[in-house]
């Protein structure tokens, strides 16, 4: 479903991604862990071309998307994204936030888009909050609206960039529950997170990144229980305490 081949990215003199390669089959959930500054977020942004890789290929559903004859907007419609700081459109209510993409990008009729948005909001447990504006919602509610917004584009996969890091502890569970349900329904997802419980229960595979490279890759029990690499051991030791 998503294949990334030897991706490199520089920000000025900073070499952020140093040849990343991985392959994610349809329906699988991949969790990426690693210290801050290791390039996790940049890697996610390279997959939907919010950041354009300097070298390498991004292949979505068999199509290389980072090439001049493909509009990056098209690539972004194939892959949804959920941000650490929610980034809901502040001037639109929950329903409008979810319906904006279908209406303005896919050209769907407003009534159909809003009906769809209502269903999606119900799916993330927010049927009662369709008219609420982002500033009137809790962090957990905002993040669930953001997940509905990503789903509204019928993406082939969803990227989660530390979706629970900005949340107060009492709201983390509700967001993780929605994500877990998505994974169980067979959504392909790439999740940058430090929620070890979620990673162990939901992810088929975990990537450990450091300094722009994949240091170690494996099943959750291998990475958490028996890390092979020195740096993985040090990092896992720190987050598991």
């Amino acid at each position: 479903m998503i294949r990334v081949e030897r991706i490199h990215k520089h920000f000025g003199r900073l070499h952020v991604l140093r040849g990343i390669t991985f392959d994610l089959p349809r329906g699988e959930a991949l969790v990426i862990i690693g210290p801050s500054g290791s390039g996790k977020s940049t890697l996610l942004r390279c997959i939907n071309l919010l950041v354009e890789p300097d070298e390498g290929k991004v292949i979505i559903d068999g199509v290389q998307v980072n090439r001049p004859d493909i509009r990056p907007e098209w690539a972004r419609q194939q892959v949804g994204m959920v941000f650490q700081s929610f980034n809901l459109f502040t001037h639109l209510n929950a329903l409008e936030n979810v319906a904006l993409g279908p209406i303005r990008v896919k050209g769907m009729a407003r009534e159909a888009a809003e009906e769809k948005a209502k269903q999606l909001l119900a799916r993330v447990g927010l049927a009662a909050k369709t008219q609420a504006f982002p500033a009137e919602l809790s962090g957990g509610q905002q993040q669930r609206v953001a997940i509905a917004r990503a789903l509204a584009m019928d993406p082939k996969a969803i990227l989660f960039d530390e979706p629970t890091s900005a949340l107060d502890p009492e709201y983390i569970r509700e967001v993780l529950d929605v994500m877990t349900a998505l994974a169980r329904d067979g959504m392909t997802m790439v999740v940058v997170t430090h929620e070890m419980g979620f990673a162990s229960n939901v992810a088929q595979r975990i990537l450990f990144m450091d300094a722009g490279m994949i240091i170690e890759e494996g099943r959750p029990e291998e990475i958490f229980g028996n890390p092979k690499h020195e740096r993985t051991r040090a990092f896992v030791g720190k987050i598991l305490r």
């Binding site: 972004r76 994204m81 980034n87 459109f89 904006l100 990008v105």
Partner: peptide, 20 residues
């Protein structure tokens, strides 16, 4: 973040300007 979110759902530059 608003711009990023707008682009992430596939809005073009002009439409992100216009609607977000």
């Amino acid at each position: 973040g608003q711009v990023e979110a707008a682009r992430a759902i596939g809005l073009s530059r002009w439409r992100a300007m216009r609607y977000v």
